[in-house]
Design a protein around this nucleic acid. Structure first.
Lengths: 135, 135
DNA sequence: ATCAATAATAGGATTTATTATTAATTGATA
DNA sequence: TATCAATTAATAATAAATCCTATTATTGAT
């Protein structure tokens, strides 16, 4: 990020809009109405750059495509097993994880990833995956 | 798994051999000397089937390809940020996670995924990723 | 032991998410 | 405003996983 770009500004605005956790393709779809000539590669590159600089967070979800989060505060996520929707879990990190030793199994510990798995209210009510939820 | 297959037996043997956490491709490579005509699709199908029946465990790792674990007891994993190697962390699940409520954020909670991120001893010593470690 | 039904396989094509390449454009700076 | 590296658009390439179809193997019934 050695200089500004209009594309990056718009991408950041769209990632920050709402509390969703969009994939690169979803960001692309949201940006396109404003920048019809933008390409998907530009979206990927800028999302990675913004995440590398801590402006947004990258969520690498097991078995799913990568998502991005405009909220950089420390928080966990819960993910719907049926539709893939990702929501925030407010509150502090687990105390037990905070208290882990510096080394374990001879590894130097740098961090952790935790996500809860569940069924979102919409999928529970409709008794099936709700495609409009995201996946 | 309505019928037995020789291929599945060999695949299971190879996943259980050692304490590694092989990817489908790695299982394929290990099985090939014994079954030269096996195809990658067969390996994927049988690994998924074995996991669905609880015979092995599927590890869906953020930002990495899927791996499989012949050890089905409850345990967490630690993963080397440099080389991708995955090791077991012995011991029980975190008490705090055990005590989570049934619902959170209006989701029905079904489970969780936790993995620790670190640097493995080999990568620490060689001051760089060790390609022979797996990734 | 043989046979018919059908589950499972081999081999290859396809899909999806992501990354790399390249020529043209743009933003920061002298 | 001329320069030059950073950034872009467009597209090709890659990697992991899935799908497709003709063939083979396993099973329960004879």
């Amino acid at each position: 990020m050695k200089r500004h770009s209009h594309q990056r500004d718009i991408i950041l605005e769209e990632v920050r809009r709402g509390k969703t956790h969009p994939s690169a393709q979803e960001v692309f779809d949201r940006v396109r109405p404003r920048l019809p000539k933008i390409s998907l590669g530009t979206v990927y590159r800028n999302l990675e750059q913004l995440a590398a600089h801590g402006v947004i967070r990258k969520l690498e979800l097991p078995g799913q495509q990568r998502r991005f989060d405009g909220d950089t505060s420390e928080h966990y996520h819960i993910r719907c097993l049926a539709c893939g929707q990702v929501d925030d879990i407010p509150g502090p990190l687990l105390v037990q994880i905070r208290q882990l030793p510096d080394t374990l199994n001879n590894y130097t510990i740098l961090g952790h990833r935790l996500e809860l798995i569940g069924i979102c209210p919409r999928c529970r009510e409709t008794a099936g995956p709700n495609p409009s939820n995201g996946q």
